[in-house]
Design a protein around this nucleic acid. Structure first.
Lengths: 230, 230
DNA sequence: TAAATTTTTGAACGAACGTTCGATTCAAGC
DNA sequence: GCTTGAATCGAACGTTCGTTCAAAAATTTA
């Protein structure tokens, strides 16, 4: 618990910048936010920022890539050993919403600024997104194959589910809305009942709560671009 | 059919500009799009545009207001005379998706640029949005009261439904995805079955297709700001 | 302490932004 | 043909944008 968790000082500062940048992008939108806004928010001088990333686009990429990787990584860890398709889908929903409510700014940047990312970076994030979508589709097909779901277009079912989840950032209000666990339970119930022939409706609400934290155990990784090189 | 449909030449040109502006905003985002982009796309000179609207914000407002009014107006017309909550909800979904797939640019601007609108205009659009939400909530409560829905938080049910629908603009591909009618049928089926105790599952898929066009019969309305206002 | 390396900065670059304005063209009414 | 108002435009305004760079400060290595 000592060697793997070491972060260089510059790595920690990059994280610091990424966090503030996500907040600013979430509040003003990627195009509406200026590097000067991020400089003000993070208390790093304007030119100083460019020591840690090479362009505004790369900054957006780093935020999106990190967020998506965290979600997918944590999901795969939570899915390990669970066989029931109902439970696997419930876990996917729970995991997604856990991250969204724990990292609202990063999540909003992920959902709302997907098109703002330009081409060398865009395909990289799109690739992770595709893996995530394929995983969901797989689970849905197990669900449909095993229990026998209603004759619903799987693509629409899965993308409808993602819509339900991803839209949360536009309306979620911690003062009136339930915590992640209950919210995920409700959505899982809605989706599973909506999509399946009614026979086992108990699996949706109660998820065995496998590792509620969404911490990422990545080591190394972020590197200063000046000398890190291609 | 003659007097009410007359549009002044300047009104038609404003519509022309609004259409191109919606296309540009949809493609590049509100902040990412420049007035010069709209000038290029609409073939109206840069300064010429300001004869028809007074600011970029007002332009965004006009697009959003017009789109939302069309949806709500058409919905109320389609709902007239329909009593069954299931059918009313199916009509809402159908109507929303009809508009979204027939006016993709305006829809995207409506869904994606809600936060880009600033304060005098923002509350006006928010007011229509609230009416729309309340109408959906009303229908949902009729549904829950009458047939007896599962114990699902109504707010989350309705906002989840809106998420499913509003997210469509991020993935819809006319080459592989079904037309509005079938898409709406699938989503209505998912939502109704997901939310209700399974007893009448027939009402979801088949909507009686009441007036498929989403044309607005508004007259007058848009006015050149130079001499029209206070 | 001196040299080498990493980190931070102020000042500036050209480009693009939203908006304005005076002047010009156009279309009716007399 | 002249007048009047609506419609259109080129050129420019002041600001802000993302990014760069040489130099200074801070830190590490020898």
């Amino acid at each position: 618990m000592a060697a793997a968790t070491t972060l260089r000082k510059s790595d920690r500062k990059l994280q610091h910048i990424l966090w503030h940048a996500a907040e600013v992008f979430a509040e003003k939108g990627f195009e509406g936010a200026s590097i000067r806004d991020i400089s003000r928010s993070s208390r790093v001088s304007l030119s100083g920022l460019y020591y840690y990333f090479e362009s505004k686009q790369k900054l957006l990429y780093l935020i999106q890539y990190h967020a998506f990787s965290s979600i997918l990584e944590e999901l795969q860890s939570r899915l390990a050993g669970v066989a029931s398709p109902e439970q696997r889908l419930a876990i996917l929903i729970q995991n997604h919403l856990d991250y969204f409510l724990q990292h609202p700014a990063e999540s909003k940047v992920l959902s709302h600024e997907a098109e703002a990312l330009e081409e060398p970076y865009r395909r990289e994030v799109a690739a992770i997104k595709r893996r995530y979508y394929q995983l969901a589709l797989e689970i849905y097909r197990e669900l449909a194959g095993a229990g026998g779901a209603r004759s619903i277009n799987p693509r629409i079912a899965v993308l409808g589910l993602f819509g339900m989840i991803n839209w949360v950032y536009t309306w979620y209000n911690p003062k009136v809305d339930p915590r992640a666990k209950e919210l995920a339970g409700t959505m899982a119930q809605m989706f599973l009942n909506g999509v399946m022939n009614g026979h086992s409706s108990g699996a949706a609400a109660g998820t065995k709560s496998a590792a509620s934290g969404a911490g990422s155990g990545k080591s190394g990784g972020s590197r200063v671009h000046k000398n890190g090189g291609r």
